[in-house]
Computed example of a mutant assay.
Amino acid sequence: MLARMAPVLVFLFFAACLSPVKAMAASDPAPLPVPGDALVRPDGYQVVWNDDFKSGSVPDPNRWHHETSRNRQGWYNGELQYYASEHRDNARIENGRLVIEARPEDLSSMGLDDWSGQRFSSARLTTRGHASWRHGFFQIRARLPCITGSWPAIWLLPEHQDMVWQGGEIDIAEAVGYEPGTVYHAIQTAKRNFINGNHEQGESRFNYCGGFHDYQLLWTEDRIVIGVDGKVRFAARPRGFDRKMILILNVAVGGAWAGARGIDTEAFPARMEVSSVTVWQKADRR
């Protein structure tokens, strides 16, 4: 009897030992992609928000909010722009494209209550109050300016956050005009950010000011993957990214980074053109 049971006991013993290992392995996230891999929208995702800028002369107020909250105090990083609210020179629809334009401008005679001496005007558009998302596939088709002193950015922040990185920041694409061959991608958190010098960052090397490109983000439970034109450029685990986020499109001027080599005022205005913004999510997240 014991002899006949031995093989069964051995089998059960090994099954018991291996089962936790298999369960643990099954719960491990898949490896992250590497730069150069294809970045495609996953199956089963549906459009939940988009703007293709085909109508109107200014950004749709039902989709876009003009962020002006720090004009009086001054914007972060020593930036020099005043973000105008609904000023057509700075944010408009032109030839089926959204144009965000930073301009050298004397604002002293305009009677602006929140003006604090800035020599440049620009616009910072967000989806605050209109749309926010946790996870999804984002694609923004845009042409970025490459004038020295300009700082265009396409990025995400939690809706109720004022640059303390609680809930994270996702920089889909940002560039400084004196580096026309590099677009930066990054994620920032309260513990890992550019101030501490330990944030996670990737780069795309190409002449970004030469034309329109698709700037893309895949954000899921286990990964943040950023790409350009269907190719992965940066990937990381989304540690601490637990809140819905809004999309931000802006062109800053100067500051510690973009102004490090001066500002070519004669070359301004600096414009970012956006032909479409689309967000997809899994059908069960709608």
Rank of each mutant, 00 (worst) to 15 (best):
N193R: 03
L157A: 05
S116D: 12
G230S: 05
Y83Q: 02
A26W: 09
P35Y: 07
A283N: 14
G259H: 01
V183Q: 00
D114E: 08
F234L: 14
T220P: 03
R103Q: 04
Q139K: 05
T68Q: 12
D284M: 05
F11K: 11
L80R: 06
L217G: 12
R243K: 15
M245S: 10
Q188S: 13
P152M: 10
A123K: 04
G136D: 00
R285Y: 10
A26I: 11
E86M: 05
V176T: 10
F137W: 11
Q161A: 08
V10G: 01
C146Q: 13
A25Y: 09
E179W: 13
M110P: 02
A91H: 08
G227S: 02
D106E: 03
G117R: 02
Q166A: 09
G177Q: 14
F13M: 10
E67G: 01
A267G: 05
R63P: 03
R119N: 15
A283M: 09
I93H: 00
T265C: 03
G254M: 03
W151H: 14
L247E: 04
W64C: 05
D51V: 01
V225Q: 10
D242V: 07
Q201G: 15
D113A: 12
A252T: 05
A16G: 08
A131T: 12
G230A: 07
V253F: 15
A270M: 03
R233I: 02
D162N: 15
V58Q: 12
Y45C: 05
A252W: 04
D229I: 01
F206I: 00
A258R: 05
K191V: 07
L18R: 03
G167H: 04
A25H: 01
F53I: 08
R103E: 06
D162L: 14
I226L: 09
W115R: 01
P42L: 02
I93R: 03
T182G: 08
G240K: 00
T220L: 04
E179I: 08
E67K: 03
S57D: 03
W280Q: 01
A123H: 01
N95T: 10
G262S: 08
S122Q: 00
G129I: 02
V279I: 13
I195P: 03
G177N: 14
L80V: 10
G111R: 02
M163E: 14
G168Y: 01
V228F: 06
P29D: 02
G227A: 01
V21T: 12
